[in-house]
């Protein structure tokens, strides 16, 4: 039997900025799906706060995804038929927020990522960088404690990639959100508090950005 992940033990503190680095097929995405409550481990546990989320039922998992975690994907994953505003407001619907409140908050969030003039544009009418910024605004919709970013700069050129990295830093430092990011991007790795290397489903080593610098020189 092939194990996507095997014997992984990671502890992540509130407000930490963690980069997970590893070649494709190393189990990064599986680890992500587990932390995000999108998948369940065949054995073992995943704790968020004091809660073993691998034991939650469907209803509690939905709540967790809705309130506790914001997702940012490499391919943005915006709903093509909805406008920026509607995309950002979507998680708020499931949180039971009123229409006016949703409108106000989505507008604020889109303003904060610099898209105040793109509120009623559909994803196809936006550049890749703008789409990812909509996705960041959407991830923040319900004030999550954790933002999971799966190669958020993977589909962007380095200039727009830097903008996204800056946005992630900002929400980590100013809002105190825990950021967990899978990445190959050196800029993102440099910005993180801690780096976890994984390979073949196991943790190879952990370190700080300084270790990366030391290794490169």
């Amino acid at each position: 039997m092939i194990k996507a992940l095997d014997g992984i033990d990671v502890r992540i503190r509130r407000s930490e900025y963690i980069s997970i680095v590893g070649p494709s097929g190393s189990g990064k995405t599986t680890l992500f799906n587990l932390i995000g409550g999108l998948d369940r481990p065949t054995s073992g546990q995943v704790f968020i706060d004091n809660l073993d989320i691998s034991k939650l039922d469907a209803y509690e998992l939905a709540w967790l995804r809705c309130r506790k975690i914001g997702y940012i994907f490499q391919t943005f994953n915006l709903i093509p038929v909805l406008t920026s505003l509607e995309n950002v407001a979507l998680p708020m619907i499931f949180a039971g927020m009123s229409h006016e409140h949703r409108l106000k908050k989505s507008t604020e969030l889109l303003n904060s990522v610099g898209l105040s003039d793109r509120l009623n544009h559909k994803p196809a009418e936006l550049s890749a960088g703008q789409q990812q910024r909509v996705a960041i605004a959407r991830a923040l919709a319900n004030d999550p404690e954790i933002v999971l970013a799966d190669e958020p700069t993977g589909n962007l050129d380095s200039q727009t990639g830097h903008e996204i990295i800056d946005s992630l830093n900002e929400l980590n430092q100013e809002r105190g959100i825990t950021v967990i990011a899978a990445t190959h991007d050196l800029g993102m790795i440099q910005a993180s508090d801690r780096i976890v290397w994984i390979r073949d489903g196991k943790i190879e080593r952990t370190g700080t950005p300084n270790d990366v610098k030391a290794k490169n020189t």
Binding site: L5, D6, G7, I8, D9, V10, R11, I12, R13, R14, L31, L34, I35, P41, T42, S43, G44, Q45, V46, F47, I48, D49, E145, I146, T178, I180
Partner: peptide, 8 residues
Amino acid sequence: SLIIRVLT
């Protein structure tokens, strides 16, 4: 076993 602790 797989143990991930996400502590907040």
